[in-house]
Design a protein around this nucleic acid. Structure first.
Length: 559
DNA sequence: CGACAGACTTGGGTAGACGTAT
DNA sequence: ATACGTCTACCCAAGTCTGTCG
């Protein structure tokens, strides 16, 4: 455990020593060959270098649906024109008259050519990439060599947010060393900017964890280069997060009693806070900070729910006091759920919605700051998102307890694990789009099941072999057959489990909860208790990220 | 306070590495 | 050995929450 339990630093200090090479910059733009042309109004037009580069961004995206969106086109064209020479601006006035198809074709072919490269060439490219990773991908922090999460600057291109993003298509500019702030320790070997360039700033701030930062031009916010999750720094933070969630376990009953009381408060503000907290606790909703309108896609969380996002049904499908939620959450993922709530919650919701327009805030008196202030006062370090961590982890633990049968084989136990994981993913609304190859690969699996069944001989005639048993050689034969049958049956069971698992997982993403919400010590303990090798549930990256938990948790760990 | 900047976690999508079946 | 499907690593956007400033 030593690595995870070294000395605590005071006063927000995150490290004593930090040395690194700075970011790796994406290579400069390579002009198109002479014979690849852009056409305007049917006629070839030679573009200036900067204009051409931006044209290639658009050309590369031609077969994406979003280039057909008006917002995307307008944003792109507006930003593109800004970078044009005045001569180009004179000519290029209508995006519809721009023909990028030849450029598009050029990149498609270039891509295919790269894929078709001989093995040795590919090997060479990989070695070059590895060399860059080796040189720029690691830093020294307090004497440990640590992997960096993202050591490359982001390449220029066209911004594509998620959902109906008002800024889609805008030009994301190339990051230059002059944009980059370096953070490292004063006495370290300070990274050299690329030849002929200088850094925006070099600072020595050991109260933050980032190695470099720059401001991106779309939202005008900072981007950082930080450590990989496998690092000690990130691991300790992660551990801390779960310890806070475990402390919530001790007081959550009091908190629940409190918000039930608050449903009847004289203050509307208090009632709103109590109902919102009920949703955050029961449904694992996100806090829902307010966002600047028009700057991002229209998505909401709990505190920013609007009247139009819920419908109240006094009765529905034999249940009472049903709230029907329908809204776009983080990443514009739809949250749709019908929940039977306690009567005072229902009554309060009716009250909050009275005389409001659909676009009015449901919790008009509530902000995340106000909610979190209250939570702070209930428990040290408590914020809205801790409820998600707590409920996810406790659900996994309970589900594992309920679903795991010690008599089961490994495959069955793993199915139980995945089902427990799935229960959490459903709770947290972690969805994915159905994989493009899903139905085909499902068919392939079903066919395998069928084939295996066909190979099962005599399966429905028990005792047949006993009858056939009349000589010693026949006996040996029968023994062989029995072995074969057993193998086939096991294989069949395994395939069936695999098929079930895959079908149930069609629209559910397990990764996010596994990586961010489930205390890994629960999984480690489960593996130890039931003799499952840890590799069966955590891949290499996950084992690296959760090294602290694998080190610490015994089979009797309780969240 | 309320807006805003800053720092850090959480999120889905996807290219391409990788492993497996044929 | 190769084709093929799966999984991982990476990408970078989009959240949460804290602190500061006027």
């Amino acid at each position: 455990c030593s690595r995870w339990e070294e000395e605590k630093k005071e006063g927000g200090v995150k490290w004593m020593q930090l040395e690194h090479r700075g970011p790796y910059f994406v290579p400069p733009y390579e002009p198109l060959p002479e014979d690849v042309q852009f056409y305007y109004d049917g006629k070839p037009l030679k573009l200036s270098l900067a204009t051409e580069e931006i044209a290639t961004f658009y050309a590369k995206m031609l077969d994406h649906e979003y280039t057909t969106k008006e917002i995307f086109q307008n944003n792109f064209f507006h930003d593109w024109r800004k970078e044009m020479t005045s001569e180009e601006q004179e000519i290029i006035k209508d995006l519809d008259k721009c023909d990028f198809r030849e450029i598009h074709k050029y990149f498609v072919e270039k891509n295919e050519a790269r894929k078709a490269l001989p093995k040795e060439e590919k090997q060479k490219l990989k070695e070059e990439a590895d060399k860059i990773q080796e040189e720029y991908g690691y830093c020294i922090m307090d004497g440990h060599r640590e992997k960096i999460g993202n050591f490359k600057t982001e390449p220029p291109g066209l911004f594509r947010g998620r959902g109906e993003h008002p800024k889609m298509g805008m030009l994301k500019k190339r990051i230059m060393p002059e944009d980059v702030t370096i953070n490292c320790s004063r006495d370290s070997k300070i990274p050299e900017p690329p030849e002929g360039h200088k850094w925006k700033e070099v600072r020595f701030d050991n109260t933050v964890t980032w190695l470099a930062s720059w401001t991106e031009n779309i939202q005008n916010t900072l981007k950082y280069i930080m450590l990989n999750p496998s690092s000690k720094l990130k691991g300790e933070k992660d551990w801390q997060k779960y310890e806070v969630a475990r402390r919530l376990k001790d007081v959550v009953h009091e908190i629940r009693a409190q918000y039930r009381k608050d449903w009847k408060s004289k203050e509307i503000k208090t009632r709103q806070r109590a109902v919102a907290l009920y949703f955050i606790d029961k449904l694992a909703l996100r806090a829902g900070n307010e966002k600047e309108e028009g700057e991002t896609a229209d998505t909401v969380g709990c505190c920013s729910l609007r009247v139009e996002h819920i419908q109240l049904h006094p009765q529905l499908d034999g249940q009472e006091h049903v709230v029907e939620f329908d809204f776009l959450g983080k990443d514009s993922v739809r949250y749709y759920n019908k929940v039977s709530v306690e009567k005072p919650v229902f009554k309060n919701l009716q009250l909050f919605m009275k005389n409001k327009d659909p676009t009015d805030d449901l919790f008009d008196q509530l902000t995340t700051t106000f909610l979190n202030k209250h939570l702070h006062h209930l428990m040290d370090g408590l914020t809205a998102k801790v409820f998600r961590t707590y409920n996810a982890s406790i659900t996994l633990q309970e589900q594992l307890k309920a679903l795991t049968n010690p008599e089961d084989n490994v495959a069955r136990k793993l199915l139980s694990y995945n089902r427990a994981n799935r229960a959490v993913a459903v709770l947290c609304n972690h969805q994915r789009s159905i994989p493009k190859t899903f139905s085909r690969s499902m068919q392939v699996l079903q066919e395998k099941v069928r084939q295996t069944k066909l190979r099962l001989p005599f399966q429905r005639i028990p005792g047949l072999w006993d009858i056939l048993c009349c000589s010693s050689s026949a006996l040996r034969n029968v023994e062989k057959k029995k072995q074969l049958l057993k193998r086939l049956e096991e294989q069949l069971a395994k395939l069936n489990i695999q098929a079930t698992d895959r079908e149930e997982n069609k629209q559910i993403a397990l990764g996010t909860s596994k990586l961010n919400y489930l205390d890994p010590r629960i999984s480690v303990a489960w593996c130890k208790k039931f003799g499952i090798p840890i590799e069966r549930i955590f891949n290499k990256t996950q084992r690296e990220k959760f090294a602290w938990a694998i080190d610490m948790a015994g089979e009797d760990f309780e969240f």
